[in-house]
């Protein structure tokens, strides 16, 4: 497939990377779905869920392997998906595709992160339970119907893990597969990627033990959220929850979604070409600054704590 930058040496490398990484990511998605299917036979989202997860890790034959395979495949898939999106973003390829394609890419990426996050909650250890409560309380800060909207995603009490489980294992995989149906048809089955992804992730699952899970009632000095929310965790310390948890991420996702439409909108409002270019590039630069700031916050929190 000619991608238009096969002339120079770095161009060829980038071309190869942007060709292979998303295909490898789809192999990780297959492994994630298969291992998730296996785990679903023992995982129960009701009762003592922490004990259930510990039994999967320590008691059920090969449970540790499938848990680690599911975790690593999910992480690799979402990281590769993020790189794929950044690849399109930094090379401004959103300008050559239809707006709908860009929107489905960004929405799929957001759904992928939400799937990772629900998985983080479903571990049912201390950080999972706290993440779930924080998520619920942040949605509740929405004006007018915040409490009701929060109950669409997570509820306190005995069914705390049920809705995240429903999203994690049913709604989100279906939606993600639906949004990626074009890529899945185009790129699968590809034995090379499936085999390399399978071997790599299985080796990881075989040789890297899962982290020790901390019981929900233990007393720990600092509890961290998932790596992709460390930046938000830092923001939540200094900004009001509504601003740090909803307005900032919402504005960021909204600006990325409308990025390709900015030029069309300015053109429709009959601005001259120079203003259109400045407006579009301005929004693009603003998003790059936001991404860099968030990456800095995440790194800072990962090194020195949130």
């Amino acid at each position: 497939m000619d991608r238009g930058f096969g002339v120079s040496f770095p161009g060829r490398i980038i071309s190869r990377i942007s060709l292979y990484l998303p295909r490898l990511g789809l192999s990780a998605l297959i492994l994630c779905l298969v291992s998730g299917l296996v785990l679903a036979f023992y995982y129960r989202p009701m009762g003592n869920v922490f004990q259930n997860v510990e039994e999967i890790t320590t008691l059920v034959p090969y449970g540790w392997f499938f848990r680690q395979l599911h975790y690593s495949a999910g992480q690799v898939f979402v990281i590769l998906m993020l790189l794929h999106t950044l690849d399109h973003f930094f090379r401004r390829r959103y300008r050559i595709y239809a707006l709908g394609e860009w929107i489905s890419l960004i929405v799929s990426l957001a759904l992928c992160f939400y799937t990772l996050f629900t998985g983080f909650i479903l571990k049912a250890d201390q950080e999972g339970v706290f993440a779930g409560r924080i998520f619920m309380n942040i949605i509740e800060t929405l004006p007018v119907a915040g409490g009701a909207i929060a109950r669409l995603f997570i509820v306190p009490g005995n069914s705390f893990f049920f809705l995240p489980y429903l999203y994690h294992s049913f709604f989100l995989p279906l939606l993600i597969i639906y949004l990626m149906r074009g890529h899945i048809r185009e790129w699968f089955p590809n034995e090379r990627f499936l085999l390399s992804g399978g071997i790599g992730l299985s080796l990881y699952a075989l040789f890297v033990s899962p982290r020790i899970d901390i019981p929900p009632d233990a007393s720990v000095a600092v509890v961290e959220g998932p790596w992709f929310f460390l930046g938000i965790q830092s923001l939540l310390k200094v900004l009001p929850s509504f601003l740090a948890g909803l307005v900032v991420p919402g504005l960021f996702i909204g600006c990325i979604l409308v990025l390709p439409a900015a030029g069309h909108a300015l053109r429709a409002l009959s601005f001259n070409e120079r203003i259109i270019r400045i407006g579009e590039t301005g929004l693009y630069c603003l998003l790059i600054i936001s991404i860099c700031l968030y990456a800095f916050l995440t790194l800072r929190a990962a090194i020195w704590g949130p």
Binding site: F130, I134, M136, N137, S219, A221, V223
Partner: peptide
């Protein structure tokens, strides 16, 4: 945001992790 507080017996205070 609902995290469980830790009790610090030395300072006699509750702290959010």
């Amino acid at each position: 945001l609902g995290c469980t507080l830790n009790y610090d017996a030395v300072s006699g205070r509750f702290a959010c992790p």
